[in-house]
């Protein structure tokens, strides 16, 4: 099980908080963090680990970031995605639905629900492997 985070280098405080949460809550789980679109795109193409299930947690702290993610939605087809949205407006939610996310939350929420969802997925994966 691998958690692949996208936290853009310019995502400011919300990104920093998410980074801290990853470090404290998912210690022992394989995590990878991308801070630019180019490197994320490259990773989507390479580093194939056959036995590894990946979840992509994408932070879109602004509408423009969400639009940028939307521009390479084809590359994310078939991936398990969790989205952190800039707001809970109908427009953002509608854009989010095009990613067919497993779960989404917004930056105004705490990350508690996100952690609960990720922990459940990780536990299920452990049960499956045992």
């Amino acid at each position: 099980m691998k958690l692949v985070f996208f936290i853009h280098k310019d995502s400011s405080k919300k990104g920093e908080i998410l980074q801290k949460i990853i470090n404290t809550n998912f210690y022992g789980t394989k995590c990878q963090i991308f801070r630019a679109f180019d490197t994320l795109k490259k990773s989507l193409k390479r580093e194939i680990q056959l036995t590894e299930n990946e979840i992509f947690i994408l932070l879109a702290e602004s509408v423009s970031r969400l639009n940028e993610l939307n521009s390479f939605i084809d590359l994310l087809e078939g991936k398990r995605i969790i989205l952190i949205l800039p707001d809970s407006s109908k427009a953002s939610l509608s854009k989010a639905s095009k990613f067919f996310p497993r779960f989404f939350t917004s930056i105004s929420d705490t990350y508690d629900d996100l952690c609960d969802v990720l922990n459940k997925i990780i536990n299920q994966e452990r049960i499956k492997l045992n």
Binding site: S97, R102, F103, V117, K120
Partner: peptide, 15 residues
């Protein structure tokens, strides 16, 4: 209109 996915397996019971 939208196609909305709910992954029942990923959601903890309280959520």
């Amino acid at each position: 209109n939208d196609f909305i996915v709910v992954d029942c397996a990923s959601l903890p019971e309280h959520l």
